[in-house]
Nucleic acid binder design. Structure first.
Length: 837
RNA sequence: GCGAGAGUGGCGGAAUUGGUAUACGCACUGGAUUUAGGAUCCAGCGCCUCUGGCUUGGGGGUUCAACUCCCCCCUCUCGCACCA
């Protein structure tokens, strides 16, 4: 007998065409069903889908499809994070235009996504490089500017020489550019910033609300990044006041050690340095020191092992309580942009200060004693930073140091010399980029009016496409007169347009909201659509965005809420976050240079999309990394073949039943009863794993077990109508449960089973608890905790019957012979443990 | 150093509330079918000194019972790290 062979390509293209034609996955804003918004991080249109995308989107698609079957109105959109540097580099290399390159890539990648059968609502597709998208971002910028949440300042910035642009702090990884790994330099530049620090407290506090839905480590990383510290600011008066400046403020987390201060250290970049040293005999030496520190590589300078170096400025400050003269130093380890750029030096209780003091022979003064034992400042070999009792601290002597922190802060405040305060590690977000392929920042520079925001009615400020791409990689915008030359929106005279563009992370900070009303023309959002769809119920993506994108999006959500664009109760964009693991090959990340790239297109060609999806989901739990295995995907392919053959070989007895439609009456014979029981058990297990726990690997394994059982049962099962119904119902269950994972073959076989409406529109099956119970239960028998055998007891036997059956078992008898039974533990239906000595 | 996660067969991994450790898959072995097969179906498959004993990184503890709970230690992965 020749069976029709499984041909994934014809099946898959057929159903993909069907979905497209019927608009199967478009969704309406509305309230007739509970909503569910599942979103995967949108890709950068590099031109090719890689295995990481396939896995990410396969996970999202299973969630989307299974939630639809569970009766939710599911929003599952896709789009393109389309601005960014690679387009410019590729344009230079391939002598094309970033715009052409980007749109070509989008077309190619959209085709590949469609070839994988993902259930997106393509009508909501967005591309961030389109003016219809970024015009709203320009509007947000203007509103943020109005509110003081966007501002311009000159400061040392992270500069990537290879990318010819600045980077935000979050985009510098180990002193290197996050994108190209070049060493980042420091450059003084005037740049646009978003005041993310204004939301520091809220960003930190609201992490608590995410604890249920986000991975702990992502929350920990964000908490770490925000880095709130509690302490005090302390004002030290200058011994000799400067023009208009009579004191220097420091921030400390240890106000309790204030009496141990023996020096103050300023960052070499501190604004007062030049004034302080003006009349100092060794001013030139200090200037040379400052020069050296500033030139030093950021990575080296921030390295903990780098030698701490400093130099005396010749100036002194006065202790706020004792009035003692304290020398003012500069130190290469002091950060200019944290706190006030000045720290108090307490060598006895801070390891850094200790090393510094020893190096430059500065005094060490012990003011905290660990539980009464005194330490001598001469013999100390390292700082003591633990808890203790304050000593030599004036009125505070004798206090516990925790208590002392509060007391000192209060006394400082009373004396007008400081107060309790907090500091954040988080810095404001530099959003200026000296690049072409991005959204223009909508401001102009006017000789008369200065920095002038564009008028909202002039938006969008369209990025000109007719520019000459420069070979050296620099932005062509400053050399494009038609763009630069403009009218001042305020006075109407000729002015110069800002040529920096927005960091592309700005686009991805709000795209999830735009999907709710992607085609809206006269406003960024439809308030009703946002209220209905947001927040995103399930967000899925790589953990590499734990800080960058996820922090920026959280910030934007709060800022847009306060600007009135987002619903007032909406503070967090993503309720649940799944960070999927990487797809590796031979133990390491796939990369062209290692030559270990597995191409999704090749795999689809060889096995079909269903097999590729199945393997990505079955190989490992979603959040874990997994190693691509050639024999692994063979196994996935084999399983799909097994379903196909089972169906084809048994089709003569298949009836158009739905999942779990065979009744208890249909299951008369022991084999039929058994198969129906396994069917219902599978539905129970698979539902929990796929829908509630997102454990797709075990969900799939449970269906594999059912398929294996069907292979073994089919010979024993007769051809009576009732038995055929039981078998058909089980087949329908297999197809229904797997349809979110391998939708094409399931739709195909569903149709061949005789159904006229698609499987995607079916409800998720419900199991009958009564059908899952066994007639006979296998009870484990233990003697002193060791397994000695099993015994079968009828379902519903009570504890004493179970105990009796256990004691009567020969296996148990053999082991308790000659011993006294002390205790019998009975776990009903599961186990009997006999304690005998 | 700080924070988070992980450690189970030859391999990827199961075990949801403390109750038969190793589900499912891969690899391997054998059988059936076949002209043949790298296709398919069936079976076997933790380790050992094998009528028994041992086994979830190591060591202790709680318990009738521990992969699971508690304490100590080891190893690996990721993130942060001169933030005063």
């Amino acid at each position: 007998m020749t069976e029709e062979r499984y041909n994934p390509h014809s099946i898959e293209t057929r159903w993909q065409a069907y979905w497209q034609e019927k608009n199967s996955f478009s969704c309406e804003n509305g309230r007739h069903k509970p909503k569910y918004y599942v979103l995967e991080m949108f890709p950068y249109p590099s031109g090719k889908i890689h295995m990481g995308h396939v896995r990410n989107y396969a996970i999202g698609d299973v969630v989307a499809r299974s939630k639809r079957m569970q009766g939710f109105n599911v929003l599952h959109p896709m789009g393109w994070d389309a601005f960014g540097l690679p387009a410019e580099n590729a344009a230079i290399q391939n002598r094309t235009h970033p715009s052409l390159w980007t749109y070509d890539n989008i077309r190619a990648m959209r085709d590949q996504l469609k070839r994988l059968g993902y259930s997106y609502d393509w009508a909501r597709e967005i591309a961030t490089c389109r003016p219809e998208y970024y015009r709203w971002e320009q509007m947000f910028f203007l509103r943020l500017l109005q509110k003081g949440l966007a501002y311009r300042k000159k400061a040392p910035q992270n500069w990537c020489p290879a990318c010819h642009t600045v980077l935000a702090n979050e985009q510098v990884v180990d002193g290197q550019c996050w994108r190209c790994d070049s060493a980042v330099e420091q450059k003084d530049l005037t740049q646009w910033f978003l005041k993310i620090t204004a939301y520091g407290d809220e960003l930190l506090q609201d992490l608590a609300a995410l604890e249920k839905g986000w991975p702990e480590r992502v929350i920990a990383m964000q908490r770490n990044w925000i880095g709130k510290s509690f302490g005090a600011s302390v004002t030290f008066d200058l011994e000799k006041p400067l023009d208009g400046v009579s004191s220097i403020d420091v921030f400390t987390t240890r106000p309790d050690t204030l009496f141990g201060v023996t020096f103050l250290t300023l960052a070499p970049e501190h604004a007062l340095v030049e004034q302080l040293i003006k009349n100092y005999a060794k001013a030139d030496e200090v200037r040379a020191f400052v020069d050296r520190a500033r030139r030093m590589d950021r990575l080296d300078r921030q390295n903990e092992t780098t030698e701490k170096e400093g130099i005396f400025t010749g100036a002194y400050v006065l202790h706020p309580f004792t009035g003692e003269k304290i020398p003012l130093w500069l130190g290469n380890f002091v950060l200019a942009d944290y706190g006030t750029g000045a720290v108090m030096g307490v060598p006895a209780h801070d390891q850094r200060d200790f090393a510094f003091a020893r190096k430059y022979s500065l005094p060490v003064r012990v003011v905290i004693a660990p539980h009464g034992e005194e330490q001598s400042s001469e013999s100390m070999t390292e700082a003591f930073s633990g808890e203790g009792i304050m000593l030599s601290s004036g009125q505070f002597t004798g206090l516990g140091n925790e208590e002392g922190k509060k007391a000192v802060a209060q006394a400082l405040e009373k004396a007008g010399k400081g107060r309790a305060t907090t500091q954040f590690r988080l810095r404001d977000w530099n959003i200026s980029r000296q690049r072409y392929w991005g959204a223009p920042i909508p401001v102009v520079y006017c000789e008369q009016c200065g920095v002038v925001p564009e008028k909202e009615e002039n938006l969008p400020i369209v990025l000109p496409l007719d520019v000459k791409i420069r070979e050296d990689g620099r932005s062509p915008l400053p050399d494009t007169p038609s763009f630069v030359a403009c009218m001042c929106p305020q006075c109407g005279k000729p002015a110069r347009r800002e040529t920096d563009t927005l960091d592309t992370f700005v686009e991805s900070s709000w795209y999830f909201a735009r999907y709710a009303c992607a085609r809206m023309e006269n406003a960024p959002f439809d308030a009703d659509a946002l209220r209905y769809w947001l927040p995103v119920d399930q967000y899925i993506g790589g953990v590499e965005h734990a800080i960058l994108h996820l922090l920026y999006s959280r910030f934007f959500t709060k800022a847009l809420r306060d600007l009135g664009f987002f619903p007032s109760g909406l503070s967090e964009p993503f309720t649940n976050l799944l960070t999927q693991g990487m797809v590796l090959k031979d133990g390491s990340k796939m990369s062209k240079s290692k030559g270990n790239v597995v191409s999704p297109a090749d795999m689809i060609e060889k096995y079909g999309a269903d097999t590729v999806r199945l393997f990505c989901l079955f190989a490992a739990p979603a959040e874990r990394d997994f190693d691509w295995s050639d024999s692994g995907i063979e196994g996935a392919s084999r399983f799909i073949g097994r379903i196909w053959r089972l169906f084809m070989e048994e089709r003569h007895r298949l009836k158009p039943l739905k999942a779990c439609q065979a009744t208890a009456d249909d299951a008369q014979t022991p084999e039929a009863r058994n198969l129906r029981r396994r069917e219902h058990r599978t539905v129970k297990k698979c539902s929990a794993d796929m829908n509630d726990r997102f454990q797709f690997n075990t969900a799939i394994a449970s269906v594999m077990e059912l398929v294996n059982a069907m292979y073994l049962t089919r010979e024993k099962l007769g051809t009576e109508e009732a038995e055929c119904r039981v078998f058909s119902s089980a087949i329908a269950t297999v197809l229904t449960l797997l349809s979110p994972v391998i939708p094409h073959i399931c739709e195909e076989l569903w149709e061949r089973l005789g159904h006229s409406s698609p499987l995607a529109e079916e409800c998720w099956p419900l199991w009958d608890e009564a059908a899952t119970t066994e007639d006979m239960l296998t009870v484990a028998l233990q003697v002193n905790g060791k397994l000695r055998g099993t015994v079968e007891i009828p379902q519903g036997a009570d504890s004493s019957e179970q105990e009796a059956a256990a004691l009567a078992s020969p296996a148990v008898q053999r082991h308790i012979e000659g011993h006294t039974v002390h205790k019998v533990v009975v776990v009903p239906g599961k186990l009997v443990n006999i304690v005998a000595r």
